[in-house]
Amino acid sequence: MDNRRVFLKKAGISTLALSLPYATTLSAMQTQNEDKILRVAIMGLGSYGTRVAEAMKDCKRAKLVGVVSGTPTKIADWQNKYGIPAKNCYNYENFDQVKDNPDIDVVYMTTPNSLHKPHCLRLAAAGKHVISEKPMALNAVEGREMVDACTKAGVHLLVGYRMHFEAKTLEVVRMQRAGDFGKTLFFQGLSGFIIGDPTQWRLNRELAGGGSMMDIGIYSVNGARYMLGEEPIWVTAQESKTDPVKFKEGVDETITFQMGFPSGAIASCLSTYALNYLDKFFLNGTKGFAEMQPSTGYGPIKAWTNKGPIEREHITHQTTQMDEMAAIILDGKKPVIPVDGEEGLKDLVIIDAIYEAVRAGKKVEIK
């Protein structure tokens, strides 16, 4: 018995802990784990960065502790509003110094698309986890560089797929996977709005990498994949433009695209900056259907199936997203729908193929 006590003491395990029921001990361990808080710095203090910051006020597992911005006045405003200490504030020239700051776990990049890759590589080199807004990069080549850099550095690369945690979305996905709709053979995704200020970065090819497809269109690309539960093997696509002054060369106004899947399922989708009221998903199977409208807006999401409406409490998407991402990073939780860099890379491969299909005017196989 004495030898056993000595062993337990060295191992840091008490005899009391071993005498407790397994479930009680496990519960205590989980509670201790849930006490950990993910400490977040936001890079890019624009409208979406502000939306994430406001949502995080209600988070249980994630806390805003730092900022990265090229605008000193914004930094000062955020310091006052969110109580951020000066030591956790950086600009785009010196944010590599975050490597010496143990009070920041992850940096959430809400910057223009073209900045995601270079900033991600610098953050990975600094040993910090990275959350990137979508699309993760300008193309699949850049996306692969980001994934590889974070893997090499041993840090997480996550993508801001907030809909992957939205309750009604998850219920439709659960029903599809359970076979409630039979064999699902058709998906429709309509994603669009009328974009405003023609001088904004989203209409700058160098910063955005394209037009509507590199912004709102990714929702239909990604939605088709998680709603059908498959990866597409081919795409066709067509571009149309009604305002070539506002939508210059290389900045797409409207793209209609189709995707084919191994099961024989087809997705028919629209991405546009020219029309409002386009936020709809429709999934059809041999035994039923699901429809969502709005399907990806900030909410509340509305969803119904052939069995009736889906009712779930609306929680601010970014609040749920950041708490769930905290669980992924801190606890190793596996989400129902992935949000890692490999998931972001799959969307980029498809978007590359869509642009190639527009240029070539023919079906493009996805390898």
Rank of each mutant, 00 (worst) to 15 (best):
D58S: 15
P85S: 13
C59W: 02
D35Q: 15
N33I: 09
G83L: 07
D58F: 12
K63W: 07
G83F: 01
I75W: 03
W78D: 03
G66R: 03
C89N: 04
S69C: 01
I84V: 14
A62R: 01
G70L: 02
K87I: 11
Y82P: 02
T24E: 10
T73G: 08
Y48C: 07
Q79G: 11
Q30W: 11
V68F: 03
Y48S: 11
G46V: 12
K87P: 08
K81D: 10
V52T: 09
I42K: 01
G83H: 01
K81H: 09
Q32D: 15
A41T: 06
C59F: 03
T25N: 05
R61W: 05
V67S: 02
P85K: 07
T73N: 11
Y90F: 15
V68L: 00
I84Y: 03
L38S: 11
E54K: 12
L26P: 09
S69L: 00
I37R: 08
P72A: 08
I84W: 02
K81N: 10
L64S: 09
K81R: 13
A53W: 00
I37K: 15
Q79H: 12
T50E: 06
Q32A: 14
K60Y: 04
N33H: 10
I37F: 09
D35V: 14
A62Q: 05
M29L: 15
G44W: 02
D58Y: 12
V40Q: 04
M43L: 07
S47K: 08
Y82F: 12
I84A: 06
A41L: 05
T50F: 04
A28N: 10
V67E: 02
G66A: 08
T73M: 12
V52P: 00
M56S: 05
V40P: 08
N33Q: 14
C59R: 00
P85I: 05
A53G: 07
T73W: 03
D58I: 06
K60W: 03
T73Q: 10
T25L: 07
G44M: 09
I75V: 14
A23I: 13
K60A: 10
Y82Q: 04
I42E: 00
C89E: 04
N88D: 02
